[in-house]
Amino acid sequence: MNPYRERLTPPATVFVATALVVPATLLVFLPIDQLVGVVVAVLFYAATVVALVFTSPVLTIDDEGFSAGRARLFPHEIGEVRGFSGAEATQQRGPRLDARAWTLFRGWVRPVVRISLTDETDPAPYWLVSTRRPDEVVRRLEALRQRTPGR
């Protein structure tokens, strides 16, 4: 199986919005020194961009299982998998969300995948994870499930 990898990075609009750190920094540092103000503003914005990119969780599906950020499900733990988008994804993240579910959401990624768990001792009944490609994630997780011995 070819590994699947998706980083849940913010869209360009988030990077544009975080550019407001530049004028805010300039307001503070320009009265002290113009060069320092510009340098600090650029460094703050660069640090913000780096933080947004490198702290974005990564989804991975490979022969070893499914990873969402630091959490991992092994193939034998994966139950029924369903993808949701649009209004149904909003319902899954809101009114229909079980408080015991393990979640990994990003506000800028609306579609979600719901993964039921087969482990009866796990306190979480399912995982609900943001993904830009719910159909692809469902297809790959189902394929991984089918290859698991004992199913």
Results as ranks from 00 to 15, higher is better:
2 N>L: 13
81 V>G: 07
16 V>Q: 03
131 T>L: 00
58 V>F: 00
143 A>K: 07
59 L>Q: 01
101 A>G: 05
146 Q>I: 12
11 P>C: 13
90 T>S: 15
87 A>M: 12
50 V>Y: 08
114 R>N: 06
128 L>A: 08
3 P>S: 15
90 T>C: 13
117 L>E: 11
135 D>L: 08
69 G>Y: 15
150 G>N: 11
88 E>F: 01
42 V>P: 02
117 L>R: 14
101 A>K: 11
3 P>H: 12
43 L>G: 11
115 I>W: 02
101 A>S: 15
39 V>C: 05
151 R>G: 00
119 D>N: 15
92 Q>P: 13
93 R>H: 12
121 T>M: 08
130 S>K: 01
39 V>P: 05
85 S>L: 08
47 A>E: 06
40 V>W: 10
18 T>E: 13
7 R>F: 10
146 Q>W: 13
86 G>E: 13
29 F>V: 11
84 F>K: 05
119 D>F: 08
133 R>Q: 09
129 V>I: 15
90 T>F: 14
141 L>H: 01
5 R>I: 02
72 R>N: 06
68 A>V: 00
58 V>Q: 09
143 A>Y: 05
26 L>H: 11
90 T>P: 08
105 F>Y: 11
150 G>E: 06
30 L>M: 06
115 I>K: 02
62 D>S: 07
26 L>V: 04
